[in-house]
């Protein structure tokens, strides 16, 4: 396992109470693969991304990189981790400092590592620009001289230039126009193949996630409610929330009729997470048990599980088990 979260929790103390933004989430990112986190606003997926990037320290639980605990690293060891895990964010305007030239923006991670010569850094900047389809002359310009799509290419170039193993993509295309989105998605796929990168992608667009990822985790109010290979989660969603999300997604197909009865009301607050199953107030299939007892994880398909009382499969083995090992334990 390359990058792993184990029972990760992040609670924020506020004057009104404790916000349980992330409340006991585990998942693992395999080398060369893409893991997607989906969920609605307020489900904790962005906080989880910050935890994985070590921008926030977890309240409890651990973040492991190549099996080693990293969430408490500082100083030199932390900088070493920074070389391996880079990020691309949503807003191509706010993610590039307007006062730096593009060359400096792309060079920044390498400058921070401090182990490359200037000539080597310049060479790597030019290579990175070439990879993302921008001319090397772009290095001398300022961000405001580029369009949104070009800026996002610069952000990708910057993330690639230190040759990381993992890139965390937080809504990398949702601020872009449809025709530009496809350019960036294809670019991300290409560089993944070329450099064997692993992606952790955060997105709310389900079609994009299905298109782009190998494994998917569905989050609701700080909890992971379903997780597994993308084919399984999208092909046969086991959790009523995943089912509702998929059914609600608008499709560019005029014959598709959107159902209106798959979900009730709106997402709750992470400050008052409902008792039992956090989804029960919105679940059309809830029972008395759902209101009081937190459901266990049940295997729903090979390598996939969901937390729901409606399921009766056995508990999945620890997250590090491979799907073929799980197959033997599932019914």
């Amino acid at each position: 396992m390359l990058l792993e979260a184990q029972d990760l929790k992040k609670h924020f103390e506020t004057r009104k109470g404790v916000v349980k933004a992330v409340d006991g989430v585990s998942f693992a990112l395999e080398p060369g693969k893409t893991f997607a986190l989906v969920g609605e606003s307020g489900c904790g997926k962005s906080t989880l991304a910050k935890l994985m990037l070590l921008l926030e320290r977890p309240t409890s639980g651990s973040v492991r990189f190549r099996g080693r605990e990293v969430s408490s690293l500082r100083g030199r060891a932390l900088r070493q981790f920074r070389r391996e895990v880079q990020a691309v964010f949503q807003d191509p305007y706010s993610s590039l400092n307007p006062r730096l030239r593009v060359g400096k923006i792309i060079a920044e991670p390498m400058l921070a590592q401090g182990d490359l010569s200037r000539a080597e850094i310049r060479k790597r900047v030019e290579e990175a620009l070439e990879v993302v389809g921008l001319p090397t002359t772009a290095a001398r310009l300022y961000p405001h001289e580029f369009s949104g799509g070009q800026r996002q290419r610069i952000a990708v170039a910057r993330a690639l230039a230190v040759r990381p193993e993992v890139v965390i993509l937080d809504e990398p295309t949702s601020a872009l126009d449809v025709s530009i989105r496809a350019q960036i998605l294809n670019l991300l796929s290409d560089v993944q193949d070329e450099f064997g990168l692993s992606y952790l992608i955060i997105a709310h667009d389900l079609a994009l996630v299905e298109h782009f990822s190998d494994a998917t985790g569905v989050m609701y109010l700080g909890n992971m409610v379903e997780q597994g290979p993308t084919e399984a989660v999208f092909g046969a969603p086991a959790h009523p929330y995943t089912q509702a999300l998929l059914a609600s997604a608008p499709r560019p197909d005029p014959d598709h009729v959107l159902p209106t009865d798959v979900i009730i009301g709106e997402i709750g607050s992470a400050m008052n997470v409902p008792s039992g199953c956090p989804f029960h107030p919105r679940c059309p299939q809830r029972t008395a048990q759902c209101e009081t007892v937190q459901p266990e994880r049940h295997v729903s398909a090979p390598g996939a599980w969901a937390r729901c009382h409606l399921l009766h499969g056995p508990a999945p083995r620890p997250a590090s088990l491979r799907p073929d090992q799980l197959e033997r334990t599932s019914t």
Binding site: S147, G149, D177, V178, S179, I180, R181, A182, Q183, L185, N186, S189, D205, L206, A207, L208, E210, H211, F212, T230, E231, F234, L246, A249, R251, P252, D253
Partner: peptide
């Protein structure tokens, strides 16, 4: 046509998207 082929659709797995070049 290119707008419609540029968007990923549910149920269509891992197809390379048609990317319209350039900008408006």
């Amino acid at each position: 046509q290119s707008l419609l082929s540029a968007i990923p659709k549910l149920g269509e797995k891992r197809k390379r998207l048609y990317a319209l070049g350039g900008q408006p």
